[in-house]
Simulated assay, not measured.
Amino acid sequence: MTGKETIVEYLTSVPAWYLATVEETPNGSQPHVRPFSFAMLQDGEIQYCTATTKDVYREMAANPRVELTAWKPSRGWVILRGRANLEDRADAATRQAGFEHMVGLGETWESADDERLTFFTIDDAEAWLCDIDGTWNPVEL
Protein backbone atom coordinates (compact mmCIF):
# COMPACT_ATOMS: atom_id res chain seq x y z
CA MET A 1 0.00 0.00 0.00
CA THR A 2 1.41 3.43 -0.93
CA GLY A 3 1.60 6.28 1.57
CA LYS A 4 -1.27 8.10 -0.13
CA GLU A 5 -3.37 4.94 -0.05
CA THR A 6 -2.56 4.63 3.66
CA ILE A 7 -3.74 8.19 4.29
CA VAL A 8 -6.98 7.76 2.30
CA GLU A 9 -7.70 4.44 4.03
CA TYR A 10 -7.16 6.09 7.41
CA LEU A 11 -9.30 9.17 6.64
CA THR A 12 -12.16 7.14 5.19
CA SER A 13 -12.18 4.69 8.11
CA VAL A 14 -13.23 7.32 10.68
CA PRO A 15 -16.54 9.22 10.77
CA ALA A 16 -14.78 12.60 10.52
CA TRP A 17 -11.32 14.06 10.35
CA TYR A 18 -10.39 17.67 10.98
CA LEU A 19 -8.89 20.29 8.67
CA ALA A 20 -7.26 23.41 10.07
CA THR A 21 -6.93 26.62 8.06
CA VAL A 22 -5.91 30.16 8.91
CA GLU A 23 -8.70 32.72 9.27
CA GLU A 24 -7.88 36.42 9.05
CA THR A 25 -9.86 38.34 11.68
CA PRO A 26 -9.77 41.93 12.95
CA ASN A 27 -7.66 40.54 15.83
CA GLY A 28 -5.15 38.89 13.49
CA SER A 29 -4.67 35.40 12.12
CA GLN A 30 -6.57 32.67 13.96
CA PRO A 31 -6.71 28.92 13.42
CA HIS A 32 -10.04 27.60 12.18
CA VAL A 33 -10.75 23.86 12.45
CA ARG A 34 -13.72 21.99 11.06
CA PRO A 35 -14.73 18.39 10.35
CA PHE A 36 -14.35 16.85 6.90
CA SER A 37 -15.11 13.32 5.77
CA PHE A 38 -14.35 12.95 2.05
CA ALA A 39 -11.00 11.86 0.68
CA MET A 40 -10.41 9.87 -2.50
CA LEU A 41 -7.37 8.84 -4.48
CA GLN A 42 -7.42 9.88 -8.15
CA ASP A 43 -4.43 9.61 -10.49
CA GLY A 44 -2.03 9.40 -7.56
CA GLU A 45 -3.43 12.50 -5.79
CA ILE A 46 -5.68 12.69 -2.76
CA GLN A 47 -8.80 14.67 -3.65
CA TYR A 48 -10.75 16.49 -0.94
CA CYS A 49 -14.22 17.98 -1.44
CA THR A 50 -15.79 21.26 -0.29
CA ALA A 51 -17.79 24.18 -1.73
CA THR A 52 -16.65 27.46 -3.21
CA THR A 53 -19.27 29.15 -1.00
CA LYS A 54 -17.80 27.93 2.30
CA ASP A 55 -15.45 29.81 4.63
CA VAL A 56 -12.89 27.02 4.34
CA TYR A 57 -12.53 27.66 0.60
CA ARG A 58 -12.13 31.41 1.11
CA GLU A 59 -9.56 30.81 3.88
CA MET A 60 -7.52 28.39 1.74
CA ALA A 61 -7.58 30.88 -1.15
CA ALA A 62 -6.21 33.60 1.15
CA ASN A 63 -3.65 31.36 2.90
CA PRO A 64 -3.14 27.86 1.49
CA ARG A 65 -1.33 26.44 4.57
CA VAL A 66 -3.45 23.62 5.99
CA GLU A 67 -3.12 20.73 8.40
CA LEU A 68 -5.44 17.78 8.92
CA THR A 69 -5.65 15.23 11.66
CA ALA A 70 -7.73 12.24 12.68
CA TRP A 71 -7.60 9.76 15.52
CA LYS A 72 -8.65 6.15 15.44
CA PRO A 73 -8.69 3.96 18.56
CA SER A 74 -5.77 1.53 18.64
CA ARG A 75 -4.28 3.12 15.49
CA GLY A 76 -3.00 6.42 16.90
CA TRP A 77 -3.53 9.52 14.82
CA VAL A 78 -2.58 10.87 11.46
CA ILE A 79 -1.23 14.34 10.72
CA LEU A 80 -0.87 15.71 7.20
CA ARG A 81 0.20 19.27 6.40
CA GLY A 82 0.96 21.22 3.24
CA ARG A 83 -0.49 23.82 0.88
CA ALA A 84 -4.02 23.59 -0.48
CA ASN A 85 -4.14 23.58 -4.27
CA LEU A 86 -7.60 24.82 -5.27
CA GLU A 87 -7.28 23.86 -8.93
CA ASP A 88 -10.23 21.48 -9.34
CA ARG A 89 -8.88 18.49 -11.28
CA ALA A 90 -11.51 15.98 -10.19
CA ASP A 91 -12.61 13.54 -12.86
CA ALA A 92 -16.22 12.47 -13.36
CA ALA A 93 -15.97 9.47 -11.00
CA THR A 94 -14.44 11.55 -8.20
CA ARG A 95 -17.03 14.33 -8.71
CA GLN A 96 -19.85 11.79 -8.53
CA ALA A 97 -18.42 10.15 -5.38
CA GLY A 98 -17.94 13.57 -3.72
CA PHE A 99 -21.44 14.67 -4.71
CA GLU A 100 -23.02 11.49 -3.31
CA HIS A 101 -20.97 11.81 -0.13
CA MET A 102 -21.98 15.45 0.44
CA VAL A 103 -25.66 14.70 -0.27
CA GLY A 104 -25.40 11.81 2.20
CA LEU A 105 -24.27 14.35 4.82
CA GLY A 106 -27.45 16.37 4.22
CA GLU A 107 -26.04 19.03 1.90
CA THR A 108 -28.04 20.14 -1.12
CA TRP A 109 -26.47 20.08 -4.56
CA GLU A 110 -28.04 20.22 -8.02
CA SER A 111 -25.74 17.51 -9.42
CA ALA A 112 -22.13 16.35 -9.44
CA ASP A 113 -21.52 19.20 -11.88
CA ASP A 114 -22.86 21.91 -9.53
CA GLU A 115 -20.47 24.87 -9.92
CA ARG A 116 -20.26 25.31 -6.13
CA LEU A 117 -18.96 21.77 -5.55
CA THR A 118 -15.18 21.79 -5.78
CA PHE A 119 -12.23 19.53 -5.15
CA PHE A 120 -8.75 20.36 -3.98
CA THR A 121 -5.45 18.62 -3.31
CA ILE A 122 -2.64 19.35 -0.87
CA ASP A 123 0.76 20.15 -2.39
CA ASP A 124 4.13 19.74 -0.67
CA ALA A 125 2.40 17.45 1.82
CA GLU A 126 4.15 15.80 4.75
CA ALA A 127 2.38 13.14 6.79
CA TRP A 128 2.93 11.10 9.92
CA LEU A 129 1.23 8.31 11.81
CA CYS A 130 1.62 9.16 15.48
CA ASP A 131 1.25 7.20 18.67
CA ILE A 132 0.62 8.00 22.32
CA ASP A 133 4.19 6.92 23.11
CA GLY A 134 5.41 10.05 21.29
CA THR A 135 6.49 8.44 18.04
CA TRP A 136 5.89 10.22 14.75
CA ASN A 137 6.30 7.73 11.90
CA PRO A 138 6.71 9.53 8.57
CA VAL A 139 4.44 8.44 5.72
CA GLU A 140 6.15 8.61 2.33
CA LEU A 141 3.86 10.53 0.01
Results as ranks from 00 to 15, higher is better:
Y48M: 13
D91E: 14
L141H: 08
G76M: 07
L68E: 03
G104K: 12
D124V: 13
Y18V: 09
H32N: 13
G28D: 03
Q30M: 15
P31A: 15
S74F: 14
T12A: 02
T2P: 00
K72A: 11
M102C: 12
V8A: 10
A93K: 05
N27L: 15
Q47L: 13
D131A: 15
V14G: 01
G3L: 11
Q42M: 10
E126C: 02
T118K: 06
T52N: 04
V139Y: 02
T108K: 11
E24T: 15
A112Q: 11
K54P: 03
M1A: 08
S74N: 14
Y48T: 03
T121A: 10
F36G: 04
L80Y: 01
G106A: 05
A61R: 06
I79L: 09
G106E: 08
L68P: 01
A61N: 01
F38V: 07
D88M: 14
G82W: 00
I7W: 02
G104E: 11
S74W: 13
L11P: 03
A51N: 06
A70E: 13
L19T: 03
T135C: 03
R95D: 04
T50H: 06
D124M: 13
P35N: 08
K54C: 07
A16D: 05
P31D: 14
D43F: 10
S29K: 14
P15E: 13
A90S: 15
E24F: 09
T52A: 01
M1G: 10
E110S: 13
V139L: 14
P138L: 03
L141I: 15
D55Y: 12
E59V: 02
V139G: 07
E5P: 09
I132T: 14
A70S: 12
R89W: 12
L141C: 11
Y48E: 06
T6I: 11
D113Q: 15
M60V: 06
A92W: 09
W136E: 01
V103Y: 03
I122H: 02
A90N: 11
V78L: 15
G82F: 02
L141S: 04
R89Q: 09
D124N: 15
G98Q: 10
P138Y: 09
H32L: 12
C130F: 10
S111G: 04
T94C: 14
W109Y: 15
K54H: 13
Q42D: 08
T2F: 06
A39L: 09
F36A: 06
F119S: 03
M40V: 10
C130W: 04
W77M: 00
S111W: 02
K4W: 09
A84Y: 05
T69R: 00
T2H: 08
L11N: 02
R65S: 09
P35G: 10
A61V: 09
R83A: 11
A92K: 14
I132C: 00
S13W: 07
I46V: 13
I46N: 01
A84D: 02
T94M: 03
R75F: 14
F36K: 08
Q30L: 15
V103W: 04
I132V: 15
D131P: 00
S37V: 08
D133F: 12
V8S: 02
H101C: 08
C49A: 15
P15A: 07
G82A: 04
G82D: 05
E5C: 06
L141R: 09
T135M: 05
E59L: 06
P73D: 07
K4S: 11
P15K: 11
I7V: 12
